[in-house]
Structure formats: C-alpha cells, structure tokens
Design a protein around this nucleic acid. Sequence first.
DNA 1: TGCATTGTTGGCGTTTATGCCAACGAACCA
DNA 2: TGGTTCGTTGGCATAAACGCCAACAATGCA
Lengths: 105, 105
Amino acid sequence: MITFSEAELRVKIIKAMAHPVRLMVIEFLRGGERPFSAIFGLFQLDKSTISKHLLVLKEAGIVSSKKTGTETIYRLEVPCVADFFNCATIVIENNVKKQMKCLCR
Amino acid sequence: MITFSEAELRVKIIKAMAHPVRLMVIEFLRGGERPFSAIFGLFQLDKSTISKHLLVLKEAGIVSSKKTGTETIYRLEVPCVADFFNCATIVIENNVKKQMKCLCR
DNA sequence: TGCATTGTTGGCGTTTATGCCAACGAACCA
DNA sequence: TGGTTCGTTGGCATAAACGCCAACAATGCA
C-alpha cells in the first residue's frame, strides 16, 4: 500500500492540474513554448490571476519559465501529463455510457 | 484547443483524485473490490468523512458501490487512473533530479 | 532621465473543501 | 419489538483556493 506522505506528494501534482485554467494552459503548452502574453490572451482574467496559476504549475514541476528580455516564456516540462487528460476523457465517456443505459431502461 | 467547458468536465475527475485519502482509496481498490469497513480501517478519520470522500469518487465516476445486506462494497471503475499515478511519480522524480542539480552546482 | 510595457507579489473578500459531531434509515439479531 | 451494527446525511466551524485591485521590480525606448 501507498503511504499517506507518498499520497501527499502526488496530490500536489494532481491538484496543480485540477483547475480549468491550468488544464487549458497545459494543453496549450503541449504545442510548444509560449510567452506569458499568449497564455494570458486565452482567458478573460486578470494578469495577476494567470500569473498565479502559472506559479502553481511551476511549483508542481509541471512547467518551467525563462525570461528573455521583456517577456517570460513558459514551457511544459512533463509530457506524460497528457495521460491524465486521456484518462479523464475515458472516465467521462464511461459516465455518459452509464447515463444512456439508465435512460434506455 | 480545448474549450473551457471541456476542461471543466475533466477537472471534475482530476479534482476527485486530488486528495491524499481519495488517492489512497483508489490505490487500495486497484487490488479489487473492498467493503466500506476495510477502507475506513485505513485511516484515523471519522466514518462520515470517509463516506463523503467515497461519495466524491462515486460522483466523478471513478468508483461504484453496491449494498450486500448490511455492508457496502466499493469498486474501482476506471483502471486507467493508474496513469495519473505513474505520471505524478515521474514528475516527482523529475523535481528531485532538478534539486540534485542545484545542489551540485 | 522620464515613461511605457511586462509580469510578479501583497492583500483582501468570497467561495469551496475538509472534518467533526449528531441524527438518521436499513438490516440483523435476541 | 428492542437493541445493535453499518453507513449516509445534515449542519457547522475551520482551512484552503480563487480572482480582483493596487503596488512593485525589471526591461526597453524616447
């Protein structure tokens, strides 16, 4: 069995993905490095809000950032996070199937 | 690009895993169906707390439950959640490596 | 130097999540 | 029927997460 502290470590990573904005940023960064301004442009949110979301992803080790002159470039560090996404999709499809069953009865 | 509503759907699944207790329950259930009492026995928490955590997992479609007489049996519905776990482990190892690098400099 | 641009940080109010206790319904047994 | 066990639900207090505004540091340009 996994211990509680082992679980806590993993939870930090999982929590970092558990927000629509952060999940979208991850998907966006799968296309390659992007500057802050491009990420900011995806949402109708305050720049400080976006900046903090990116900080959460950084502290979890999911993305990294580098400053080039005036702008900050963000990069996805761990491609396997796509697995999270795929699995979540499978769960959703699974749930839809069950709802269909319920309706057919 | 993924839309905000698509992200929200997936976030519900991911959030359900974003807690040490729930993550441990998932790991535990990978070994097969288990009664409530066995899950409850893993933690030093109130039975109502455990019951609510299980409800979160159920509502996300990650586990299912059935009543057999007096006890409730829980079952893992989506094996692919192991992917989440593996990826989280990779991220953690990645982070440790970086820390090592920093120390060596 | 004066000023605009870019992104981060601090602080605050609001919302959501967590965990306990108490109360409850359902099944089982004496 | 009365009492016991099992698990769920309601309600409440505390803690964490979110998002905005304001202030700030860092860079670039006139």
